[in-house]
Write a protein that binds this DNA or RNA. Structure first.
Length: 142
DNA sequence: GCCAACGTTGGC
DNA sequence: GCCAACGTTGGC
């Protein structure tokens, strides 16, 4: 089980959109960056993913689960691009903002801070647990 | 809306 | 294979 973070602009596709898809979830399509794609290829079913709102909000708002491994991105015929499928698991009682993350020394090494343009990135277990607690989840395991 | 950082493209 | 030009992301 590994942990990840994926970004989306909420006016394009936000947490509410993801949740509206229900348990069947949907493909995390549209990624056109090799590093981000490689991270999705490294995911396995059951991995957990933070949903981050970029641009508007700039905060981690919820937790998703990987329900299908990387496969051809349905929004393109280009075989270079594939994506996993994810489903919404739980909304954070309190979103964790980028400002808060930057102000937290234990989270200073997150890719969110260090390579701010990477839209699919790994999250360390300690970081995951801490953010869950900061977000108001008393239990870490979903 | 601006722009810094970064990734990609394409000419050479 | 280098690198200049260009495009995109995302914080501010």
């Amino acid at each position: 089980m590994r942990y990840w973070l994926m970004k989306s602009e909420p006016d394009e596709f936000g947490w509410d959109h993801q949740q509206a898809l229900g348990p069947a979830g949907g493909a995390w399509s549209g990624v056109r960056n090799y590093q981000a794609r490689n991270n999705m290829r490294a995911m396995t079913v059951g991995d957990l993913v933070f949903f981050y709102h970029s641009n508007i909000g700039k905060e981690i708002v919820g937790i998703m689960r990987v329900i299908a491994p990387a496969a051809q991105d349905p929004t393109t015929d280009d075989p270079r691009w594939d994506c996993v499928s994810v489903t919404a698991v739980e909304k954070l009682p309190r979103p964790v903002t980028l400002d808060t993350i930057k102000a937290t020394p234990a989270l200073a090494d997150m890719a969110l801070v260090k390579s701010s343009r990477l839209s699919v990135q790994p999250v360390a277990t300690d970081e995951w647990n801490l953010i869950c607690r900061m977000g108001g989840l008393d239990r870490v395991q979903i």
